[in-house]
């Protein structure tokens, strides 16, 4: 059985700036990283591999340089790394991205059954949180989002029980396998690659699937398959901050002042 982790290569947003003139991301020389939430998805797939003997596959869509991200997954221990890359996939929004990824998972399922697909809850560049659910819908998988704990997994009855981390509460949900699960950071602590694994991964094969392999309708992928487009990116204006009190001279008084302000602005539940 396969457990698949969908991972995305994103620009290191701590280093991204917005060009004030063109309102586009200045990405020159900005390094790419694995989307932080996806590292937790990857980790969980590796834990399932270790615990249940699943085959772990890492799946991504992107330009050819995304291979570097998939090599990181190989260094962490996935058995297969698959990159969906084709000029036709370029300019994709979340809808056409989930078309491609769902097709890749279907193709993988021809080799062996796919039990669980893990995704990060969202990416740090787009922040839409739509691709995971998009994949689930297209594959007809159970859809479990914002999971912070796997409570129980039962192969015989093909059921999984998870805890979802929602605002102010938790929700325990049971669903049928196969399932698509989006994960939050609290789920696990990602591992670090050992050196022998890094060296092995440097030479391992990253499978590249283009549209000849996935055979999707060209109108359903890439820019053509994307009903959304970005018209403008900008940083919202933020009001200037305010220095209150004298923290060095009168810490207690300043703390009281701060508390009063927080209470007055309804930021604290009291």
């Amino acid at each position: 059985m396969y457990v698949v982790a969908c991972i995305k290569q994103v620009p290191d947003t701590t280093q991204v700036q917005i060009d004030p003139v063109t309102n586009t991301l200045v990405r020159d020389g900005i390094p790419f990283i694995v989307n932080p939430y996806d590292t937790h998805a990857l980790e969980e797939s590796l834990r399932m591999k270790a615990r249940y003997g699943f085959k772990a596959a890492a799946l991504s869509m992107g330009p050819p340089n995304t291979e570097a991200t998939l090599r990181k997954a190989l260094a962490l221990g996935v058995d297969e790394a698959i990159l969906c890359s084709d000029r036709a996939f370029g300019g994709a929004d979340t809808l056409s991205t989930s078309n491609v990824l769902a097709a890749a998972i279907r193709k993988l399922a021809q080799e062996d059954e796919v039990g669980i697909v893990f995704c990060g809850k969202q990416t740090i560049d787009g922040d839409t949180a739509q691709v995971g659910p998009g994949i689930a819908i297209r594959l007809g998988f159970s859809q479990l989002t914002l999971v912070d704990r796997i409570e129980h997994l039962d192969f015989l009855s093909k059921k999984i029980r998870v805890r979802r981390k929602l605002e102010g509460r938790y929700e325990i949900v049971e669903a049928k396998l196969p399932a698509m699960i989006t994960v939050v950071r609290e789920l696990n602590r990602p591992r670090y690659p050992t050196v022998p694994m890094r060296l092995k991964a440097a030479k391992a094969e990253v499978k590249v699937w283009d549209n000849n392999e996935l055979k999707l309708d060209p109108n359903s992928v890439g820019l053509k398959g994307s009903p959304t487009w970005v018209s403008r990116i900008f940083s919202p204006q933020r009001a200037a901050g305010e220095i209150i009190g004298d923290g060095m001279g009168d810490p207690a008084g300043t703390a009281r002042l701060l508390l009063e302000k927080l209470v007055a602005s309804d930021m604290l539940a009291v």
């Binding site: 290191d12 701590t14 280093q15 390094p31 990283i33 602590r189 990602p190 591992r191 670090y192 690659p193 050992t194």
Partner: peptide, 18 residues
């Protein structure tokens, strides 16, 4: 073993990335 105190994961990634 990739076995080290938790705090170091951040350090190692910061060093490698930035």
């Amino acid at each position: 073993e990739a076995d080290f105190p938790e705090e170091l994961l951040n350090l190692f990634e910061n060093m490698e990335q930035r």
